[in-house]
Amino acid sequence: MQWQDPGTGLNSIAKAAPTARQKCNPDVVIFLTTKRLPDTPWRVVECTPMLEIHDLACLRGDRLLFRRLGLSVQAGELWRIAGANGVGKTSLLRLLCGLATPDEGEVRWQRKTIQQERESFHAALLYLGHASALNDLLTPLENLHFACAAAGDAVDTAACSAALTRIGLGQQLDLPTKVLSQGQRRRVGLARMLLATQRLLWILDEPFTALDVAAAAELAQVIAQHAKAGGMVIFTSHQDADFGMPVRTLDVGKFGGAFSA
């Protein structure tokens, strides 16, 4: 796969090529194939969505949370999943990650379902869930190092402690995690993001919760940077944050269950 800066003329080609359903992000164009288009000097393609959701439905017990939910996410996009409490935001994120199996529909990563492409999809994914995924008896440093190693990232301890120091946990490196405050725990997740910039897709469940103003601003900056570098970020949030770039919104409530038994 190859990334290219938006050059002159590229946008119009990219806009012409995709199929009707797909909308292109004008900032970034992805080249997946090298078919030469007639009448142009460009070896182009089409603008392919990296992550596609088709006709997704999710049931929780008797309640239909949402159905016919569709979305396509392209490189460089920032998506906020909106909706009231209990509307199924977290369920949607878990479906996107492949942690849960959809009752209907499918999630595709680079045109293949994430079940088919499990390994490459998970190699490109960073998911930070509602729970902090930290063990109380380990230090933040041990927790972070383990999280990276278990995910398959080759990150050494020095890089972990540098990331933790950068987000303001330099004093707490060797303390057990149980003495950390809620916000400090969240910051460990922030450090994980700093170490996972090579993972294209970030899915973040309520990343701003419990963060103070400074940390929230830093998080917004990290997220925006990732998107500008060609990554994708999908997150849920109740707070408004300034990313300095457009944020697309998906309201899960609009796909709400038409019936409940």
Binding site: C97, G98, L99, E119, H122, A123, L125, Y127, G129, H130, A131, S132, A133, L134, N135, D136, A147, A150, A151, G152
Partner: peptide
């Protein structure tokens, strides 16, 4: 159970490695 509650199991399931390894 501890890893289930803290969310570590979710992270492990998202690892590139097949679950049987860990």
């Amino acid at each position: 159970s501890q890893d289930f509650d803290s969310g570590v199991l979710e992270q492990l399931l998202l690892s590139q490695e097949p679950p049987v390894v860990w």
